[in-house]
């Protein structure tokens, strides 16, 4: 419906990450510490991000979209712990286990995170909807290349042009 791509970009070049982490805790900590240092989130962001992911997982099974796609997750937490509206892309070189958002009893191996910073749930278009639209409308071959990329620059420029 009104999910028009926002005019200001949801992505920043300096908050695109390629992570070597092998656990959810490690990748969350590395990214959250950097986001805090850069002033995008509050000090309590990491703690709340972890608690929320434990209770309400955010893994998304993309095999139902295309069997070749890797799974993704959309970690996020309450608006009060973030200072702006952003999507933070994180490529995981080592797949990490997340539980399925719509069926928390199911575990998924995830290799890309779209961390959502949303300080304004009511405003504009829905960020999660935009991420799903991006996944659904990007040609399969291009998306597969994107998900395999381990270059922050390549990830950033692809998202800038295709999201």
């Amino acid at each position: 419906m009104s999910d028009k791509v926002a005019e200001t970009s949801l992505f920043d070049r300096d908050t695109v990450y390629v992570s070597e982490a092998t656990s959810r805790a490690d990748v969350f900590k590395a990214v959250a510490d950097d986001l805090y240092k850069k002033g995008h989130v509050t000090e309590d962001f990491l703690k709340n991000l972890n608690e929320r992911e434990d209770k309400y997982p955010t893994g998304i099974d993309l095999s139902v979209v295309s069997p070749e796609y890797p799974n993704v997750a959309i970690p996020h937490t309450e608006a009060e712990f973030v200072k702006e509206r952003k999507v933070v892309p994180i490529k995981l070189k080592n797949p990490i286990s997340f539980n399925n958002m719509i069926d928390p009893s199911q575990k998924l191996e995830v290799s890309f995170l779209f961390m959502i910073l949303n300080n304004d749930p009511e405003g504009q278009s829905n960020v999660l909807a935009q991420i799903m639209d991006f996944i659904n409308k990007t040609p399969r071959n291009q998306l597969l290349t994107f998900f395999k990329s381990t270059s922050e620059d390549a990830i950033y420029s692809f998202l800038q042009s295709k999201f």
Binding site: Y56, T58, H76, E78, N118, L128, A129
Partner: peptide, 12 residues
């Protein structure tokens, strides 16, 4: 969980 993303998408 957070009341920001998923539930608002369902609502809309």
């Amino acid at each position: 969980g957070a009341g920001v993303n998923s539930s608002h998408q369902i609502k809309d």
